[in-house]
Simulated scan of single mutants.
Amino acid sequence: MTVHESFRPALIPDPKRVSPTSDTQGEVLDSAVYSDLYHLAETEGLPYFARMSAAGDVELFLVFESIDAFSESTRDAVSVEFKTYRNKLLAVIWTLTDPLDPLGFPLSFDIKRTEDRGMALRMLEQAEVPLHYLAFEEGRLTHIYTEGITFSPEEARQAHAMVEALFFDRADELPHQAEVQEAAEAQSVPLSFLSDAKLEEKGTAYLIDFMRLQDKHGADEAQHLLMSTVHQAVWVMRRHARSEVRERSFTVWAAEHDGLLRLIVTPEMSDLFEVVHLTEDEANPFSRFLFTLPEFLSTEDAVPLRHGAYPLIRMEAGRLYHLELDETSAERLGAIFDRLYPGELNPYENVSE
């Protein structure tokens, strides 16, 4: 196999796959005929995805919780912006462009995966890419509308160059503005920004073999890699198709002990997501991105205070905040721990020793 063949794989479309057409617009899609769409939208719970049609073309799908939600989320002319994150090309479909309240759907193509890379390249070659808007209500998928997305020659050229740079590990060739930069948008606030009630919340811990990560990348790069992964998940949460996800407030904590790192997200989000799949398309953004780390170990229910964790990031009313910690932070967290768990060993005591 030549380098070109390796980079540009030949994908075989499924001839039995059926796509929405003008005839199905406004209609409920048959669950037998469109079984793969029902699987992705209902079983997998994906709010947006790409797939290859029977003709070998890439088509994009946005799934809304209702037709009203579609109307509220698509007031502006649709546009696509290409970004990169690690080995992934993100095709962000912007449906609301208000700078104070933007809404984008980041379709992810893992360029190291043959199928994803082939689909990304095919999408850039198409004269028009179908974008299907669907609504999933009460177990039924309705085809709302379909429009075609086009890329200018320059847009396609730049995105193709991103795919090449990601595939051939030439990160230095990526434009700086192409990389997801979520952290720069955050405002720094003191720990007093969070109430005791928020600091007492339970959540889900993602266990990472931090010692192995440090051995592989070095301490600074390991920390940067983890925070970049967390910020990518936050970025997707802020631009999620489902309004209840975009509006959810949450805190990201970290606790490290003997080479084991717990990244804890509070409060618990089982009402939004189920952390049960180890797939690339896991609907929970934190699971989706953290599961891809080779050093990821498992998840568990967790109370951050019991692990001596410190809050790092807070999402509140759609705004991102970084928590500034100082010498009084351990004192406050320790005092809350003593109040909740009197007589137990306080993990915040003697932290400087």
Rank of each mutant, 00 (worst) to 15 (best):
E155C: 00
Q187K: 14
A186S: 03
L141R: 02
F136Q: 06
E147A: 08
E155F: 04
G203R: 00
T97D: 12
L103P: 06
Q177Y: 11
F136P: 00
M119N: 14
K112D: 04
L103G: 08
H132A: 14
Q126S: 03
Q177N: 09
G148D: 09
I111E: 12
F168Y: 15
D98P: 00
L199S: 07
F193A: 11
K112E: 10
L107Q: 08
A120P: 02
L141A: 06
I144F: 10
K202N: 10
R157I: 06
L96G: 09
D101Q: 11
E137N: 11
Q181G: 01
L121P: 10
A127D: 14
A135C: 03
F193S: 08
P153L: 13
F105K: 08
H176M: 07
D169M: 09
V189Y: 03
E201M: 04
A165F: 05
L100E: 15
S108Q: 06
M123N: 01
A171R: 13
E125C: 02
K198Q: 15
T95A: 04
E182D: 05
D116H: 15
L166K: 11
P190R: 00
I144W: 05
T114H: 07
E200D: 03
Y206D: 07
E137V: 10
V180I: 15
T204P: 00
L174S: 08
T114W: 06
A205Q: 09
D98Q: 00
E200M: 14
G148V: 06
Q177A: 11
L121S: 03
A156D: 01
R122H: 07
T204S: 05
E182H: 09
M162G: 03
E164G: 03
L141G: 03
T97C: 07
M162W: 11
P130F: 05
Q187N: 02
